[in-house]
């Protein structure tokens, strides 16, 4: 099982991106580097029902960062061992070893490793390790006005919320064993029969 886990209540997430801003502020991240990202998933449209066209669009939000996977693909792919699991069990980057090849970003299915153009190295969510050491939760969790996020050890989170469900567009969790528990938005069920998409990618 993964060491740590985030909990996301997608039903409660309003997509306000406070978590994203709090993360950028706390970690002083430059433009384009987002350790936490709020994805807007959309789908639906006009559908014919009994000869009448009705509009059935739907959407929901997913706030995601590094899932601190049990089998981190980024760690396996990294040629320099810059991407490693540190003594606290957190997947971290050693910027002294990183050569900025970006291979970890190809291997990660969650878009967690982010390239810092100015520093020429990969960076990623460190679960606010400094906060954890003083018993505080990560800044994204603390800032969420909807209390849609939570964080703890895998045991704490799963005993509190169960193991959750997988939702579009995340890959099958059995492949990577991510440290994430999701309470899906009711609209995510629509993606089983309909082609949904990530809004940010669609409108690029």
């Amino acid at each position: 099982m993964p060491e740590y886990a985030f909990y996301i209540n997608s039903s409660a997430c309003s997509g306000c991106k406070t978590c994203q801003v709090a993360c950028k502020d706390k970690n002083d991240l430059p433009t384009g580097v987002n350790w936490r990202r709020v994805y807007e998933i959309e789908g639906g449209g006009w559908k014919e029902e009994n000869g009448v066209f009705v509009s059935q669009p739907y959407g929901y939000f997913l706030s995601l960062s590094c899932q601190n996977c049990e089998n981190p693909e980024c760690v396996k792919a990294c040629p320099t061992t810059a991407m490693h699991v540190n003594a606290s069990g957190i997947v971290a980057v050693d910027s002294e070893l990183c050569i900025g090849c970006r291979y970890c970003s190809w291997a990660c299915p969650y878009g967690a490793p982010q390239y810092d153009q100015a520093k020429k190295v990969m960076t990623k969510c460190n679960l606010c390790e400094d906060y954890l050491s003083i018993g505080t939760k990560p800044s994204c969790v603390m800032s969420c006005p909807m209390r849609a996020l939570d964080f703890g050890t895998w045991e704490e989170i799963t005993s509190k919320y169960g193991t959750g469900e997988n939702v579009f567009p995340l890959p099958d969790p059995s492949q990577y064993k991510p440290g994430i528990v999701i309470k899906p938005h009711r609209n995510s069920a629509m993606t089983r029969n309909d082609k949904a998409y990530i809004a940010e990618n669609e409108y690029k």
């Binding site: 792919a77 040629p79 061992t81 990183c98 050569i99 291979y103 020429k120 190295v121």
Partner: peptide, 25 residues
Amino acid sequence: FHLGKPLQAVHTLRNLKSSWLSREI
């Protein structure tokens, strides 16, 4: 040229156990 820090490329042989990139180098 595609590396952020080419001068640190000497470290690329550190993960032969699991990285295809290390093995390629």
